[in-house]
Design a binder for these strands. Structure first.
Lengths: 119, 119
DNA sequence: AAAAGTAACTTGTATAATGCAAGTTATATT
DNA sequence: AATATAACTTGCATTATACAAGTTACTTTT
């Protein structure tokens, strides 16, 4: 079960890298940020990414990303109620971090391919 | 217990970010890379970092980093046998990724402080 | 010479995170 | 009425992480 929404409450150190990894250091969170930067906004769009995140993990990460101020959730229609997620400035500013990963990854995973922006 | 040394064997997708996170996407691995970039080389030096990694996790990550080609292990003395770890080019090339985290983290964690190089 | 210390780990155990399948709620479509 | 869709939640098994303690092979201190 995935029931904790509370954040770690104390960071491990004052190092900015450690602080960042406290919030982003897992196998999925930065991939959701990647999808958002590429234009995806909805639950089903994230699920459709090639890594196939599980629905419980996705729901958990969206909650944590929202409570940590990386994204906002808002309804884009009322009947039926449907939500979309948008990056805050804090989230958008991770662009250079992901670009650094891409630059590095293209060298060390020669078969890899950068995903095309949605839209 | 931490007994698996084998790598995931299949990457989740062809995305270079996903490939990178397959090897680096956890709370500790990039902090060890950070320490190595700052000049640390020995088990006890990594343990002394302010985040206080557990010894079993550190031993596990050093093995995984070596088998993934990020670091090399070599004895720096024989009696008693002691090892040091050095970054390969693949590991050193993560410098810009960590710098991007630092640049971002300094903005969003105003109390954070960049660690000084060891030496 | 015995006791204590140090580096680099390993082992045990408890808690937390992840993965997979299935179920839920509220509509819309056929 | 039956099926479909979006956005989740729930259960359960597997894997990862945290913390404490133990191990091995020396070196240093008393």
């Amino acid at each position: 079960m995935t029931k904790n929404i509370a954040q770690p409450s104390v960071e491990r150190s004052f190092c900015p890298i450690a602080c960042a990894l406290d919030e982003l250091g897992d196998k999925w969170t930065l991939l959701i940020i990647r999808d958002l930067l590429l234009g995806k906004k909805r639950f089903q769009e994230f699920l459709a990414s090639p890594e196939h995140i599980a629905t419980n993990i996705l729901a958990d990460r969206l909650k944590k990303l929202e409570s940590a101020g990386f994204i906002t959730q808002q309804a884009y229609q009322q009947k039926p109620l449907r939500y979309q997620y948008d990056l805050t400035q804090k989230g958008k500013d991770l662009g250079p971090v992901l670009q650094a990963f891409v630059n590095w990854g293209k060298i060390y995973y020669p078969n890899s391919q950068v995903l095309k922006p949605t839209v």
